[in-house]
């Protein structure tokens, strides 16, 4: 079954509108003909995209559409099969590095360290190459710097607690503070609020938008929730298969079927994307 090809935004007019809104944004990340397959199973097919500094990309799609694979390729935990991924013009390092911060849905924080220590640990990694541990005055400095970031995410009051004493939302705040203290070039969020209650999720949205503006971050965020994608992103990507062979479901991979700049996030496009997601859910 071939699904109706969804119109991609016209490249030329898109470029113009982007130039006006992000005159200062330089290209930070480029995907050139990137393909990912596991043996016969083609997951992502010929991804081409450019992302500028300061963009907030939200990625949606049905499960198994490859959006997490895309994020993991950026993170360096999954190697791409073909093509080039460039970060500021250089091929991306194929293992996690401080250039790319990450917040997972779960297990992002260290259970054996207090909240402060969780944030200060990257300072200790920086200054103590073997033990990864600082003592005395140096440790105090690292902890004080950690406190500043805890303040930025609204977690200063809980600085001496351990992660198991924190709620889910507070743990995610901690994971964000951990990532930000390293000043990463890109911040990757893998369904960070998927396990949180709706009220708390709203607070986290506010926090992420505030941090994004204040620190001019480039953010990639995978989400299940289309509303969340529309609300948070400056650009919304939809991952889906454009062709589908019912007899060989693995033959065709996903690609980015929608690439919507924030200006175009109107009710009509929301409906259109929701319908296409529904259709691909049914066909899967």
């Amino acid at each position: 079954m071939t699904k109706p090809q969804i119109a991609q935004p016209d490249n030329q007019s898109d470029n113009q509108s982007e130039k006006q809104t992000e005159l200062l944004g330089q290209t930070q990340i480029e995907f050139r003909h990137v393909t990912k397959s596991y043996g016969e199973n083609l997951v992502l097919d010929n991804i081409n995209c450019e992302v500028k500094r300061g963009e907030f990309i939200t990625m949606v799609g049905t499960s198994g559409c490859g959006k997490s694979t895309f994020l993991n390729m950026l993170l360096g935990t999954v190697a791409h099969t073909k093509g080039d991924i460039l970060l500021e013009g250089n091929p991306i390092v194929a293992e996690p590095s401080p250039e790319r911060g990450i917040v997972f849905q779960k297990y992002s924080v260290f259970p054996h360290l207090s909240v402060r220590e969780n944030v200060a640990i990257s300072k200790e990694f920086e200054a103590s190459p073997i033990l990864g541990r600082l003592f005395g005055e140096k440790r105090q400095h690292a902890l004080e710097e950690a406190d500043e970031w805890l303040n930025a995410v609204g977690l200063l009051a809980a600085k001496d607690k351990y992660p198991h004493e924190l709620s889910g939302g507070m743990q995610q705040r901690l994971a964000i503070a951990q990532a930000l203290i390293k000043h990463p070039k890109v911040l990757l969020l893998d369904e960070p609020f998927g396990a949180l209650d709706p009220g708390i999720r709203k607070d986290m949205h506010k926090l992420v938008l505030a941090l994004w503006q204040k620190y001019q971050l480039t953010i990639f965020m995978v989400t299940h929730d289309l509303n969340e994608g529309f609300y948070l992103g400056t650009r919304l990507w939809v991952f889906d298969k454009t062709r589908h062979d019912p007899h060989a479901p693995h033959r065709y991979g996903s690609t980015i079927t929608f690439d919507l700049p924030i200006g175009k996030t109107d009710e009509a496009s929301f409906q259109q994307i929701e319908q296409s997601l529904e259709a691909s859910r049914l066909s899967a």
Binding site: T77, F104, F125, P129, G132
Partner: peptide, 27 residues
């Protein structure tokens, strides 16, 4: 020990020895 923690530690700049010392050993 969850893989997520190891990835996280690497994005925080940990090398292999630091990762063993500070993330794995205490746990």
């Amino acid at each position: 020990i969850p893989q997520e923690q190891l990835v996280k530690a690497q994005t925080l700049g940990a090398n292999s020895v630091q990762l063993i010392n500070r993330v794995l050993l205490p746990q």
